[in-house]
């Protein structure tokens, strides 16, 4: 297992310290905020967080497996969430999803081999007035056309910082990360 870069550990530890005083109640926000930095929650991070918040490690995994926005394995630098619920379906989400799957060569809930893009089919995202709707990380696009989504994905790939875990394997990486 690789050890993340020191400055990233510092960011993570600041988050953990802030939530540690909340004990168990700080666990979910702590996991979300750490994941904002790291991209996903590695076994190493889970153990670290469990120790500092004084909760059993099993409970950390209990939360990760319950909440769909928490990940215990790497996801793409860009996560594409395509809404396929009733209002979006009525306005063409199936065709949009098919076009995106074809263009990216991805099945739903899979990540491209280079670890760049994850495609998720999502229940109602609550932007029904902009159907069909897609979230690209936290960037909103809707009504979405496949070509616009793909262009925005490319823009994100060029600007998105790589995550802590990837950067840990690449000591030469220097750019600053954001949440």
């Amino acid at each position: 297992m690789h050890s993340p870069q020191p400055e990233r550990w510092q960011q993570v530890d600041e988050i953990i310290q802030r939530w540690a005083t909340h004990g168990r109640s700080g666990l979910l926000p702590c996991l979300l905020e750490v994941q904002d930095i790291t991209g996903y929650l590695s076994p190493e991070l889970c153990a670290h967080i469990a120790r500092h918040l004084r909760v059993p490690e099993a409970d950390v995994y209990g939360l990760i497996s319950f909440y769909s926005l928490l990940y215990d394995r790497p996801v793409g630098r860009v996560v594409l969430r395509v809404c396929d619920d009733v209002p979006c379906y009525v306005r063409g989400s199936s065709e949009l999803l098919n076009a995106l799957q074809e263009a990216l060569g991805l099945e739903p809930n899979k990540t491209t081999a280079d670890g760049a893009i994850t495609l998720e089919v999502h229940p109602c995202l609550g932007r029904c007035e902009r159907a069909p709707f897609v979230l690209i990380n936290d960037d909103e696009i809707g009504p979405a056309r496949a070509e616009d989504v793909l262009a925005r994905v490319q823009a994100h790939l060029q600007s998105a910082p790589s995550t802590l875990s990837e950067r840990a394997e690449d000591p030469a990486a220097t750019e600053e990360g954001t949440g």
Binding site: V86, P87, C124, G126, R127, C128, E129
Partner: peptide, 10 residues
């Protein structure tokens, strides 16, 4: 707010 088709609270 997560009920499908609901976005008023947002």
């Amino acid at each position: 707010e997560s009920e499908p088709g609901t976005f008023k609270d947002r």
